[in-house]
């Protein structure tokens, strides 16, 4: 196989303006990875053209500066298609202290025959806030998905917070009641809970579980909502329920509840 070339690289950086508000300092994108600012502190991923296709290598770098907040969403789901070799989507994120990132794009849909690799590395400063939602749909309606291997790594304050890989299209794991069961979609939302720099440790958080979804307080300062579902609508419903439980538990009406709720999409 030939070495994949970087086909597209997008960069997104925030900063503070004179009034102390977030402004987008750098917004650079390459088709098919196009970024558009849609509101102050909000950017949408707009796919121009289909893809990624096999052989594509896309990279997104996000840096949320100290004290700023950024929301990244997308207009439509990402359809991963087969092509010449493996496609790669690589995301690198840094969220500085006192900064907030909401990353909630539409789902990634794995079309038949695709061979996709996704890697995400999120580095959080000790008191950064994160809301990160990831949804994978196993094929379009009635379609058997191709292969996908995703890896998500988040560290907070230099310590590992969450590392998880999903492999879809692996005969060992597909249809296993231990992995995805009969689900056709998998999703998770990582919500970090702010840890005060000093003072007592926060109350032990309770896990919660409902049909196809669990709210899982992590060992570190965060909670993972993890869901399985038969379709993307059900998946989003389950994740949203879990996300709302996290806000309820967080108790404080500050950033944890307001700032970290992804705003309703401006796009129908």
């Amino acid at each position: 196989m030939t070495k994949a070339l970087v086909r597209a690289r997008a960069i997104l950086r925030t900063g503070l303006d004179d009034r102390g508000l977030t402004r987008i300092e750098t917004i650079r994108s390459d088709p098919p990875l196009t970024l558009r600012q849609t509101a102050p502190g909000e950017v949408h991923l707009v796919s121009t053209g289909a893809g990624p296709l096999g052989g594509d290598h896309l990279r997104l770098d996000v840096e949320v500066a100290e004290g700023t907040s950024l929301t990244v969403r997308s207009i439509a789901s990402t359809l991963v298609l087969p092509g010449a070799g493996r496609s790669l989507m690589e995301i690198h994120v840094y969220v500085a202290s006192g900064a907030t990132l909401v990353f909630a794009p539409e789902p990634t849909v794995l079309a038949a025959g695709c061979d996709h690799r996704m890697t995400t590395a999120v580095t959080l400063a000790a008191d950064a806030s994160l809301f990160w939602r990831e949804e994978i749909v196993f094929g379009r309606h009635g379609e058997r998905p191709g292969r996908c291997h995703s890896r998500f790594d988040a560290t907070a304050g230099g310590r590992p917070l969450l590392r998880q890989e999903f492999v879809v299209g692996d005969p060992e794991a597909d249809g296993s009641p231990a992995v995805f069961g009969t689900a056709r979609c998998v999703g998770s939302t990582l919500i970090t809970t702010e840890t005060p720099a000093e003072g007592p440790k926060s109350e032990p958080r309770e896990a919660e579980v409902a049909e196809g979804v669990a709210v899982l307080p992590l060992a570190g300062p965060g909670t993972l909502v993890s869901a399985l579902a038969a379709d993307a609508v059900e998946l989003r419903k389950r994740l949203s329920w879990g996300e709302s439980r996290v806000s309820v538990q967080a108790g404080s009406p500050a950033r944890a509840t307001v700032g970290l709720r992804p705003p309703a999409s401006r796009f129908p």
Partner: peptide
């Protein structure tokens, strides 16, 4: 830091 991290959401649900 790069050790395998294969998740099994169904096992998580079952355990809880």
């Amino acid at each position: 830091s790069a050790l395998p991290a294969h998740a099994a959401p169904a096992l998580d649900l079952l355990a809880e």
